[in-house]
C-alpha cells in the first residue's frame, strides 16, 4: 500500500519529502559525525580559535603528528588515563542494573498485572511518584548514611541506588506489557499442567520477550547514561565512563585532555549505536505492544 501511495505522489512533492528527510538526517547526525571526525584530530585543530575550518583541514594535526588523523586522543584516554577501567566499571554497573531490575520487574510486573487486589494499583501509583522525582533529590539523602556506613564509593552501592531509581519504571512498563497478555494464556497453561511459575516461564515469558528486551534496553540506557548517581557515589578508582568523561572535561588546563574527553565520548557512544541496530526489531515490536497478542 505505502509503495503505491508513494508512486501516486507528484514528483515535486516526492523531492521535497526526500529533501526534508535528508536535511533532518544531516542535522540529527551532524553532532555525532563532527565529534567522530574531530576525535582523530589534535586539540589545536578541533578547538581552533583561529579558524573553525581548521577542524576539517587539520594543519596542526599534520604538523604535530605527521598524518591527517591521529589516535592520540584514544591512546591518552584508554591507556594513559585508564579509560578501560571506567569501561569495565560501566559494564559491571550496567549488566548488574539490567539483570536485577529485569528480574524484579518481570516477576513483580507479572504479579501486579494478575493481582485482583486494589493495592496493586496503588503500588504502581507510588512507583510512578518515585519515578517522577529527579534522581539527585534522592542522592543528597543517601550521601551522609553512605559515608557513615562506609558504603560510599563502591560499585555495588551505585548499582543498588540505580536499581532503586530504575525499578518503578521497569515495573510500570512490564506491568502494562503483561496486562496486554490475555489471562486465558496463563490459565490454559495451569490447566494443561503447569504451576504458576512454570506457566510464567514456559508460556508468558516467550510471548513477553519483545517487552522484556525493550524494557531492558531502557534500563540499560538509564544506567549507562547516568551521571548524577555515579558521579556522586563513586570514588575516582571506581568511576564509570560518563563521570570519567566529565572528569576529562574538568581538567582542560592540561593540553590534550579535552581530546581525551572527545575520544571517550565517541568510545562511549559507539556501543549504543550497535545495540540499537542489533535490537531494532525487538524494540519496534515491543513498542507496538499489540503485536504481543496471540
Amino acid at each position: 500500500m505505502s509503495t503505491r501511495l508513494a508512486d501516486r505522489r507528484p514528483p515535486a512533492m516526492q523531492a521535497i519529502l526526500i529533501g526534508f528527510l535528508a536535511l533532518w538526517l544531516v542535522i540529527a547526525a551532524f553532532p555525532f559525525l563532527w565529534t567522530l571526525w574531530g576525535s582523530f584530530k589534535v586539540e589545536g585543530d578541533f578547538f581552533s580559535k583561529a579558524d573553525w575550518a581548521n577542524a576539517l583541514r587539520g594543519p596542526l594535526t599534520r604538523a604535530e603528528t605527521g598524518g591527517a588523523f591521529t589516535g592520540a586522543g584514544y591512546h591518552g584516554a584508554w591507556i594513559q588515563e585508564s579509560f578501560w577501567r571506567a569501561a569495565i566499571n560501566t559494564l559491571i554497573v550496567v549488566v548488574s542494573v539490567v539483570t536485577i531490575s529485569l528480574t524484579f520487574g518481570t516477576l513483580g510486573g507479572y504479579a501486579l498485572s494478575r493481582s485482583p487486589y486494589r493495592y496493586a494499583f496503588w503500588l504502581l501509583i507510588v512507583a510512578l511518584v518515585f519515578r517522577a522525582m529527579p534522581p539527585i533529590a534522592l542522592i543528597s539523602g543517601y550521601l551522609l548514611p553512605f559515608y557513615q556506613w562506609n558504603l560510599w564509593g563502591h560499585l555495588p552501592t551505585a548499582i543498588i541506588v540505580l536499581v532503586a531509581i530504575n525499578q518503578p519504571f521497569t515495573l510500570w512498563m512490564l506491568t502494562s506489557f503483561f496486562r496486554n497478555i490475555p489471562k486465558d494464556l496463563d490459565e490454559s497453561a495451569m490447566v494443561d499442567g503447569c504451576s504458576r511459575f512454570q506457566a510464567f516461564r514456559h508460556v508468558i515469558i516467550p510471548v513477553m520477550w519483545p517487552g522484556v528486551i525493550t524494557t531492558g534496553l531502557f534500563s540499560f540506557l538509564l544506567a549507562y547514561n547516568d551521571f548524577a548517581v555515579t558521579a556522586m557515589l563513586l570514588d575516582k578508582e571506581n568511576q564509570t565512563m560518563i563521570p570519567k568523561i566529565a572528569f576529562f572535561l574538568g581538567t582542560t588546563q592540561t593540553k590534550g585532555n579535552v581530546m581525551f574527553a572527545v575520544a571517550a565520548v565517541v568510545s562511549a557512544t559507539a556501543p549504543l549505536f550497535l545495540l540499537v541496530v542489533f535490537f531494532q526489531r525487538q524494540i519496534v515490536s515491543g513498542l507496538t505492544a499489540g503485536a504481543v497478542k496471540g
Binding site: P182, D184, L185, E187, S188, V191, V203, P206, K293
Partner: peptide
C-alpha cells in the same frame, strides 16, 4: 482440561 472462550493458544 479446559477450552477457553478465547482459546488461550500459545502464540509462540
Amino acid at each position: 482440561a479446559m477450552v477457553f472462550q478465547s482459546y488461550g493458544l500459545y502464540p509462540t
